[in-house]
Design a protein around this nucleic acid. Structure first.
Length: 527
RNA sequence: GCGGCAGUGGUCCAGGGGUUAUGACUUGGGCUUCCCAAGCCCAAGACCCGGGUUCGAUUCCCGGCUGCCGCACCA
C-alpha cells in the first residue's frame, strides 16, 4: 500500500491530535484539506436525504443528561464488565461468561461481582478461578452544572428520538418522515488501534425514519437497482432491490430503499463499488435496540463497517415514552371515501348493485393517498362523486429505520480507494480544491493574468489554489496528490487571445477555453 | 488491557555513550525553463516525554505516550 497516512499528514488532510503533547490514541485533527473534504462529504450526504420533501435536519446537544441514556439503554448496556485471569492474563467480558449460566442482562455490578467472588467462573484457557471483575462504561461521563450526571452522546440518534413529538408536529402529523442529524459522537474505546477507523470522538450522520407502513412510495423507482448483499444465513450475492423484498430477505421496503440510497451516495463520494457490500448482522452481534441490522462494509485492508442500516422497531420511542411519561404514540389515520349525497341517485344508476357502494365506502387508503378516481369491478368513479375523509384507527407507536454513517470512516475509505501512485482520484464534488491555477512560467505578465483568474474563480465560490512554485510539472503533481481534478494554466497565448488551458487530472489531457466562458465551464465540470 | 517489536527535520530512512548527528524527498529564496515531480546555487528544519545509571545519554535501564503485530474488546 502507498503511504497514505504520510501523505495525509504532509499535505494537510489528517493529523494525529495532541501530537505536541505526545498524542492520544483515538483522536485526529482534520487539517485544511481534510476539513474541506469532510464538509464536501457531508454536503453530498445532505443532498441525498434532504432532497426528500418529508426529511428535515436538526442539531442537538452533544452533552446528554443521564436520564435520557438510561432510558435508551446505553447506561446499562454500554457498560462492559471485564474479568482478567490472574494466571494467564486472558480477559473476558463478564456478561458473556455468565450468559450460559444465567440471564445476566439485569445484573448490577455488585450482583455480578458476587457471582465471580464465589469462584464459580473459571478461565477457559487455563482453568484458574476468575474472581475479580472491573466495570467500564464506554461513554464519557461528565457533570452538568452542580451535580446532574451527564454523558457525551454515543450516538446522535437519541436527540432525534426525544424530539419525536416536535418532529411529528413539524411534519403536520403525517407519517412517514425522516429526521437527520450530522454531528459528533463519543465513545471511550478501551484501546483504539486502527487509526481513523476507531475513534473516540467521531463524526456521524444519522437518519431516523419514522413510519407505519413497511411499503415505501419511492421503492418503485429503485426496484431494479442492484445490491451486493451478504445475509446472515447465506453467502454474498448480488440481487435487485425488489428481489430482496420478494424473497423476504428484508421485509421493509424503506430499509432496502435506504440501502440503495447509501450505495449511490458512497459511489458518488468515491468509494469503489467493487469493494462495497451489505452484510447482515448475526443475532448475537446486534445492538440492544436493533431488530435487524445491515452493515455497509467497504474493503480496506479488511472489510470495514462504514455505515449501518438498522431496523430499530419501536424500541426507542417505547423506552422514552415509558421513562419520560410523555405520550409518543400517534393516531393511525386512514383515508376513506363517501359518496356525495347529491350524487347518490346518479351513482346508484351506475352501480346496479348497492352492495358495491357499501364496498367502496368500506375501503381504506393511506392517509397520504391521492385519490382521483376509484375503480371497482371495472367501473370507474371520478372524484367529483365522493368526499374524502380521514378516520382515526387508534393509537400506535411508529417504527424506525435508522441509516447511520461514520463520516470519518467514509472519508478514510475514499482516500484509501482513490490514492494510487501519488494521484488521489477524488470525484470533483469531494475534492477539497477544485482548481489549481498557475502561470506557465514565472513571468510578471503571466503571473498577473493567473492571479486574475484565481480571484475570479474564488469570487465565484470555487475553491482554488494558486501556485507558481517549481516547474509546471511539479505543480500538476502537487495538485494530483491532493485530488484536485482540474488545473488552469495561463500561458503566452493567454496574453494574445484570452484563452487558458484546463488540464484534467485523470486523463492528463488539456483543453483550451476562453476566460469569458470559464465560469460556465467550471459549473459544467463541477456538475 | 496483556505479550512482542519500534519511535531521529514536514515525510522516509542512516547512525551512534563524548566537538558542527547522515542522506533522500519535501519546503522557502534565486537562476534556468513555452505544459507533466528536469537541472544548478542558497537556505530552513530532527534524536517522543519523564526518571535513572554516568563526568557526560539522542544512544544503556525503567516508566509513560504513540505506532505496528498477535490476544482480548469494538455495545
Amino acid at each position: 500500500m502507498e503511504d497514505l497516512t504520510a501523505m495525509c499528514k504532509r499535505r494537510g488532510f489528517i493529523y494525529p491530535a495532541f501530537e505536541t503533547y505526545g498524542g492520544v490514541a483515538g483522536f485526529y485533527d482534520y487539517g485544511p484539506l481534510g476539513s474541506l473534504m469532510k464538509k464536501n462529504i457531508e454536503e453530498l450526504w445532505r443532498s441525498f436525504y434532504l432532497s426528500h420533501k418529508n426529511f428535515a435536519e436538526i442539531a442537538c446537544p452533544a452533552i446528554v443528561p443521564e436520564a435520557v441514556l438510561k432510558a435508551s439503554g446505553h447506561v446499562d448496556r454500554f457498560t462492559d464488565f471485564v474479568s482478567t485471569c490472574p494466571k494467564c492474563k486472558s480477559s473476558y467480558r463478564a456478561n458473556r461468561l455468565l450468559k450460559e449460566e444465567i440471564d445476566s442482562s439485569s445484573l448490577t455490578f455488585d450482583g455480578m461481582r458476587d457471582i465471580f467472588k464465589s469462584g464459580k467462573i473459571k478461565c477457559s484457557k487455563c482453568g484458574e478461578k476468575l474472581t475479580e471483575i472491573s466495570a467500564f462504561n464506554l461513554m464519557f461521563e461528565t457533570k452538568i452544572g452542580g451535580d446532574l450526571k451527564g454523558f457525551l452522546r454515543p450516538e446522535t440518534a437519541q436527540g432525534i428520538f426525544i424530539n419525536f413529538p416536535n418532529m411529528y408536529r413539524y411534519f403536520r402529523e403525517k407519517l412517514p418522515f425522516g429526521v437527520v442529524q450530522i454531528g459528533r459522537g463519543y465513545r471511550n474505546e478501551i484501546s483504539p488501534r486502527q487509526g481513523m477507523i476507531r475513534l473516540r470522538e467521531f463524526n456521524m450522520a444519522e437518519v431516523e425514519f419514522f413510519f407505519d407502513d413497511p411499503l415505501c412510495k419511492e421503492f418503485e423507482g429503485i426496484k431494479d437497482e442492484k445490491l451486493n448483499i451478504f445475509p446472515k444465513d447465506g453467502h454474498e450475492i448480488e440481487l435487485k432491490a425488489h428481489e430482496i423484498y420478494d424473497k423476504n430477505i428484508i421485509r421493509n421496503q424503506s430499509q432496502i430503499y435506504f440501502m440503495v440510497l447509501t450505495r449511490k451516495f458512497l459511489i458518488e463520494a468515491g468509494v469503489d463499488p467493487g469493494r462495497l457490500r451489505f452484510r447482515q448482522h448475526h443475532t448475537q452481534e446486534m445492538a440492544h435496540y436493533a431488530k435487524d441490522c445491515w452493515d455497509v462494509e467497504v474493503y480496506l485492508d479488511e472489510w470495514t463497517e462504514v455505515a449501518g442500516i438498522a431496523d430499530r422497531g419501536t424500541y426507542d420511542l417505547d423506552s422514552h415514552m415509558r421513562s419520560s411519561g410523555k405520550d409518543f404514540s400517534v393516531e393511525r389515520k386512514r383515508k376513506k371515501i363517501r359518496i356525495k349525497e347529491e350524487k347518490m341517485e346518479e351513482v346508484k344508476k351506475i352501480f346496479d348493485k348497492t352492495d358495491l357502494i357499501k364496498k367502496i365506502e368500506e375501503m381504506e387508503f393511506d392517509e397520504n393517498a391521492d385519490i382521483d378516481e376509484i375503480t371497482i369491478e371495472k367501473i370507474t368513479l371520478k372524484k367529483e362523486f365522493f368526499d374524502q375523509y380521514i378516520v382515526k384507527k387508534g393509537k400506535f407507536v411508529p417504527s424506525v429505520i435508522e441509516p447511520s454513517y461514520g463520516i470519518d470512516r467514509i472519508l478514510y475509505s475514499i482516500l484509501f480507494h482513490n490514492f494510487k501512485q501519488g494521484v488521489l482520484a477524488l470525484p470533483p464534488k469531494i475534492a477539497p480544491i477544485k482548481f489549481g491555477v498557475f502561470p506557465l512560467l514565472r513571468k510578471k505578465e503571466l503571473k498577473e493574468r493567473a492571479r486574475d483568474v484565481f480571484e475570479m474563480l474564488n469570487k465565484n465560490g470555487t475553491k482554488c489554489y494558486y501556485d507558481e512554485g517549481g516547474s509546471i510539472g511539479r505543480r500538476y503533481a502537487r495538485m494530483d496528490e491532493i485530488g484536485t481534478p482540474f488545473c488552469i494554466t495561463v500561458d503566452h497565448q493567454t496574453l494574445e487571445d484570452s484563452t487558458i488551458t484546463i488540464r484534467f487530472r485523470d486523463a492528463r489531457e488539456q483543453i483550451r477555453v476562453n476566460i469569458k466562458d470559464l465560469a460556465e465551464k467550471v459549473r459544467d465540470l463541477l456538475g
